[in-house]
Nucleic acid binder design. Structure first.
Length: 386
DNA sequence: CGTATTTGACCAGG
DNA sequence: CCTGGTCAAATACG
């Protein structure tokens, strides 16, 4: 697959688009498999037309990309539109056996920023603006949110206050405390495997760099940063803390966005043809990315279509987007893509709260020999300076 | 042996 | 000065 330019520079979107466009052919195939299940012709037709629409939009989008690539807001809208179409199809198809194993899984969530939506750039959205709310921001009503969500589907907390303080990280010899504007908090139910519950995995690979006892909390807070930081300066971080009152729920706060494409899954094979042979070999990379049984399972159980064209998933590095656009998507993005294989119709999030692009989780997984191979792939590798 | 985690010290902000 | 966040040496792990 031809991958776009360096991360952080070229729009990863291009990848998505080529991906989508590349799968137009598969449309018919998808259609036929749908028909098999369906018994409501009308609805099937609807779903199919939605899928067609999505493909069409994607193609359109792709062709205008050269002209619009400098307009992130527009691109975001386009993505949303496409995602909407897929989501619509998904909803229609769900009764016929989507992988709805009980509760939405939020994968790659692309949420448009509030401003953006408010600014009325949403001509694209066929749907009402994101209902933004189930919970309050950390600090405020977290607990309530936690309670509400515990045991339930993963949900996103409303992103933090409207105006991030424009604190300019300043350059010091010592430790800089960076204050990335966007941060968001999620309440995540603990993964339970047997009788041990472990902190949630979100599909990214994190490296723990600290732990602190927090005043007034029974459990310590752990600090993680993206494992790939060293390779291409991915600044994403997260804090994880167990809730006192509900130890089965973790409060996860993401700061910063991934500028890397993470992957815990096998290589992405764009051309539909090659996918079939790509078996899924989960590649837990480290403690940071232990498999997340619960989150992944629902999908893992999913029968792999013989030639499932849309069966890998990509984490998009959205770093090239201005903060205004990516606010709120960032690191918080994925919840539980750990072993790929989704973005079939059924994987598209259902909640329409956020347009969901769960595309292939891609890229490098080349042997995993770690650094050395990475170096080859990412010349812009930059060692952490100190 | 290289990489990830642990853990106390250090730093910055309030 | 207290607290949360980060660093980095020591340690564990594979």
């Amino acid at each position: 697959m031809h991958v776009l330019a360096p991360y952080g520079a070229g729009p990863p979107l291009a990848l998505v688009l080529s991906y989508l466009a590349g799968h137009r052919e598969s449309q018919t195939e998808a259609a036929s498999s749908i028909v098999v299940h369906g018994n409501n012709v009308g609805e099937m037709d609807e779903a199919l037309s939605q899928i067609s629409e999505a493909f069409r939009l994607a193609g359109e989008f792709m062709s205008e990309l050269p002209a619009t690539q400098n307009d992130p807001a527009y691109l975001a809208d386009r993505c949303h539109g496409i995602a909407q179409a897929y989501n619509a199809a998904f909803r229609m198809l769900q009764p016929y056996g989507g992988l709805d194993a009980g509760g939405p899984l939020d994968f790659l969530l692309l949420r448009r920023s509030a401003e953006e939506a408010a600014a009325g750039r949403s001509q694209f959205l066929g749907e009402p603006p994101v209902q933004q709310e189930p919970f309050h921001v950390a600090g405020a009503d977290v607990l309530q949110g936690a309670r509400a969500v515990a045991g339930g589907p993963l949900r996103r907390l409303a992103s933090s206050s409207g105006s991030p303080p424009p604190v300019q990280p300043r350059q010091g010899s010592g430790r800089r405390r960076r204050e990335s504007g966007q941060r968001q908090t999620l309440m995540v139910p603990a993964q339970r495997t047997g009788n041990t519950e472990l902190p949630p995995d979100d599909g990214y690979t994190w490296r723990k760099y600290g732990q602190k006892d927090i005043l007034g909390s029974r459990y310590p807070r752990s600090y993680y940063r993206c494992t790939h930081k060293n390779y291409y300066g991915c600044e994403a971080k997260k804090k994880v803390q167990r809730l006192d009152e509900d130890p089965f729920t973790y409060e996860v706060t993401y700061c910063g966005n991934h500028s890397c494409l993470t992957s815990t899954t096998p290589l992405l094979t764009l051309p539909a043809a090659t996918v079939a042979s790509t078996t899924n070999s989960p590649t837990p990379t480290s403690a940071g990315s232990r498999l997340a049984p619960d989150l992944v399972m629902a999908h893992a159980e999913q029968p792999r279509f013989a030639a499932a064209p849309l069966s890998t998933s990509i984490h998009l590095g959205m770093n090239w987007m201005p903060a205004s656009v990516q606010q709120g998507i960032g690191a918080g993005a994925g919840e539980g893509i750990s072993s790929g294989a989704q973005m079939n119709v059924s994987a598209a999030g259902r909640d329409s709260d956020y347009p969901v692009l769960d595309l292939a989780d891609a890229m490098f997984n080349s042997g995993s020999s770690g650094a050395s191979s990475m170096d080859g792939i990412f010349p812009f590798h930059q060692r952490r300076d100190t």
